[in-house]
Amino acid sequence: MPKTLEVRWHGRGGQGAKTGSAVLAEVLFEAGKHVQSFPEYGAERQGAPMKAFNRVSDAPIRKRCGVQNPDVVAVIDPTLLESVRPTDGCTEKTVYLVNTPACPAEIKAQLGLPDAVKVITIDATKITLEEFGQNRPNAPMLGTFAHIFDEVPIEAFVEHFSHKMAKLPEKILAANVRAIRRGYEEVQIG
């Protein structure tokens, strides 16, 4: 892992990229990391493309500017693969997490990425539609992140969510927990 790992989220207003980035920061903070989570505030409207960012490090983080060269790119909405440039500023070492029914090879072809680039796909939309009847892909996406931070087990994500959302009705909480776990288990890594 580089000294400070930088994450860029691509989502649409209302899809939970900002919350996803905040929850990821909290989980990693509880695991002993130094973290930042911040969205890029534009014209805040539902459905507009937006970005959110994380920085994660073993040392305190001083840098407070946007992420230019992300180590991880998380795409919450598959339609953004076409309409924004998720590869901007990336290197061949950047890892992509994409919410899509497609397999990694298809995403690589779509984004014009070399074979060596690591792409993890997860059909987070399908999972949340099945689990709670709404398209809220950030819960499974968090589970997918456990593949990036392999020193932080999926249970840490589940426990954090269960603790934080303890006030949710039991059924909804259980559905979310299943969604996080499925986000970890149902990935395709290529």
Binding site: A22, A25, H34, Q36, S37, F38, P39, Y41, I61, R64
Partner: peptide, 12 residues
Amino acid sequence: QDGFITSHGFEP
């Protein structure tokens, strides 16, 4: 404090 950068950034 700097608007958004500090005011809306989350950190420990």
